[in-house]
Design a protein around this nucleic acid. Structure first.
Length: 162
DNA sequence: GCCAACGTTGGC
DNA sequence: GCCAACGTTGGC
C-alpha cells in the first residue's frame, strides 16, 4: 500500500464535488505531466489512500481523504478534439496519458499549506520540496500517519487498512 | 499580477 | 545531445 497526495483546483473540482458523488468512482483525467502519469500508471494500487489537496486557490491545503477505486487506464480526454486535454499525438493503439479513478472517503478540516510547512515532523513531504509543482506526489507512511493523527485528529487507521 | 522553478520543444 | 526559448504551475 502506498499513500498519495493529489492536487485539484477547487474551482474545477473540489472535495465538495467529490463528496457530492460519494460512492461513485471518479476519473482523475487531465494529468499531462509524465512523472505524475507514471505514478498513476505504474504505482497506484487499488484502495491506496489519498490526500485531496486544494491548489491555486485562496486557501491551499489538504481538504479531505479519498482512495484509489480503479487502476489506471487511458485518459479518454486525450482522444477528444473538443477537450482542452486533447493530445493530437495520442492514438488508441498508443495512448500517452492515463488516469486512475478515486472515490470519496471523508472531508477534513482545511489543513493549510502554511501549517504543513510549519511542522518539522513532515519536513520531507514531497509537496513541500523547493520548487515542487507535481500534481500527484507520494506520501511516506510515517508522514501520512503524522498528518492524520497529529494535524487532522483522525484515528490512526484513517485512510489505511481496515 | 509577479515570478521562481521546472518541464517541453525544436533548431543545430 | 545541447541548450535557448517558451510554456506552465502555483504560492504569494
Amino acid at each position: 500500500m502506498r499513500y498519495w497526495l493529489m492536487k485539484s483546483e477547487p474551482d474545477e473540482f473540489s472535495i465538495d464535488d467529490l463528496a457530492q458523488v460519494s460512492g461513485q468512482s471518479v476519473a482523475w483525467f487531465g494529468v499531462r505531466n509524465y512523472q505524475a502519469r507514471n505514478f498513476m500508471r505504474d504505482q497506484m494500487q487499488l484502495d491506496d489512500p489519498v490526500f485531496f489537496y486544494h491548489s491555486s486557490c485562496p486557501q491551499p491545503g489538504i481538504a479531505g481523504l479519498a482512495r484509489v477505486s480503479r487502476l489506471a487506464y487511458p485518459d479518454q480526454t486525450q482522444f477528444d478534439s473538443t477537450s482542452k486535454y486533447f493530445d493530437p499525438a495520442a492514438t488508441a493503439e498508443r495512448p500517452r496519458w492515463f488516469n486512475v479513478e478515486v472515490t470519496f472517503v471523508q472531508k477534513t478540516r482545511l489543513l493549510a499549506l502554511a501549517e504543513l510547512r510549519a511542522d518539522p515532523a513532515i519536513a520531507g513531504l514531497t509537496l513541500l520540496a523547493r520548487g515542487s509543482r507535481l500534481s500527484i506526489t507520494p506520501v511516506d507512511a510515517g508522514h501520512w500517519q503524522h498528518i492524520c493523527t497529529h494535524l487532522l485528529g483522525l484515528p490512526a487507521s484513517a485512510g489505511g487498512t481496515q
